[in-house]
């Protein structure tokens, strides 16, 4: 008892080192993450408009589930994040395989391939908006030269969606590329050499060596890509603003506008809760369908 009293500060600090280092972290996470998360679940059960605040149970969810605008936004967001994931995967994997060959200047290429990922997403949206401007844009100028330019791209629903998906893909490719390239570099070269001696075709090499080795990095990279494009709003806000009409309006923008256009905080919170569960579904889907295959050699 007396001995404990005599602990100096530094001895006390040393004895409780783990507690003292972990406590601030726990408090920070509780204050910045857990509290808002609990709040959004509670809020989703209330009608919360200027001057009104009362409990309604699941009515907000019912309202959303019958809101046709929400259905359209949800479907569009699935299309958007699905296609963006698909394209960034195909192009990212292809470029990673090209970069994986023993070529000089790989470091240089790797850095500049990363550029679109590193600019703020808002700026990425601006870059596309300005590049494809129907009068002054350079991309438009190129398209005119091959005979399909001069159109006000962003005023046509389908083309606006194509541009939006293209911009998202453009932002995501570098991330996929970098991670799959690192994954490719862990594959022992001996495997390919041995299989080539056995006369395996490139397609077989790809299917039976490359893909099995890459499953883990593919799962992580593509989970991040799908999750992040599913919640994306920055690019849409600046590139199309959700228009023309509602043709490119995404889920995240639905949450934002319910809250800050229509001041319907309860409904916005309910949509937020749906977004959280949808994200959990994405995580579950990736973990089920892209399980690391622990296969013994046949």
């Amino acid at each position: 008892m007396k001995q404990r009293r005599n602990l100096t500060i530094s001895q006390f600090f040393d004895k409780h080192f783990v507690t003292i280092t972990i406590a601030p972290f726990v408090i920070a996470i509780a204050a910045a993450c857990v509290v808002p998360l609990v709040m959004v679940f509670i809020e989703s059960l209330f009608v919360d408009r200027p001057g009104e605040f009362f409990f309604v149970g699941f009515k907000n969810f019912l309202d959303i589930s019958t809101d046709r605008a929400f259905h359209a936004d949800l479907l569009r967001t699935i299309e958007y994040s699905g296609l963006s994931s698909l394209f960034s995967f195909v192009i990212g994997l292809a470029m990673a395989m090209v970069l994986n060959q023993s070529i000089r200047g790989r470091g240089f290429f790797r850095v500049w391939a990363l550029y679109p990922w590193a600019v703020p997403p808002v700026v990425a949206g601006f870059i596309f908006k300005w590049f494809f401007n129907e009068v002054y844009g350079a991309g438009n100028d190129l398209l005119i030269r091959i005979g399909i330019g001069g159109v006000n791209w962003l005023s046509q629903p389908d083309i606006a969606m194509v541009l939006l998906i293209a911009c998202d893909t453009w932002v995501r490719i570098p991330f996929v590329l970098i991670i799959l390239l690192a994954g490719l570099q862990t594959i022992p070269k001996v495997l390919y050499e041995a299989a080539e001696i056995d006369g395996a075709s490139p397609v077989r090499l790809f299917r039976h060596i490359t893909i099995p080795y890459l499953i883990a990095p593919i799962r992580v990279a593509m989970l991040v890509v799908t999750m992040f494009s599913f919640r994306m709003m920055d690019i849409m806000m600046i590139l199309t603003g959700g228009g023309p009409g509602r043709a490119t309006h995404l889920f995240a923008a639905y949450i934002y506008k319910q809250g800050f256009r229509f001041l319907h905080f309860g409904r916005s919170a309910a949509a937020s809760v749906i977004m959280i569960f949808a994200t959990l579904l994405i995580v579950a889907a990736y973990n089920i369908f892209l399980k690391p295959r622990v296969k013994e050699s046949r």
Partner: peptide, 30 residues
């Protein structure tokens, strides 16, 4: 190794899954 380290590590991963857009209402109100 300490008690609750597994749970805390799980929280770290879980917090990366929460979409920031889902927390705009609580953050705005707070």
């Amino acid at each position: 190794r300490f008690r609750g380290s597994g749970l805390l590590l799980f929280l770290i991963i879980a917090s990366r899954i929460i979409p920031p857009i889902s927390l705009i209402i609580p953050y705005f109100k707070i």
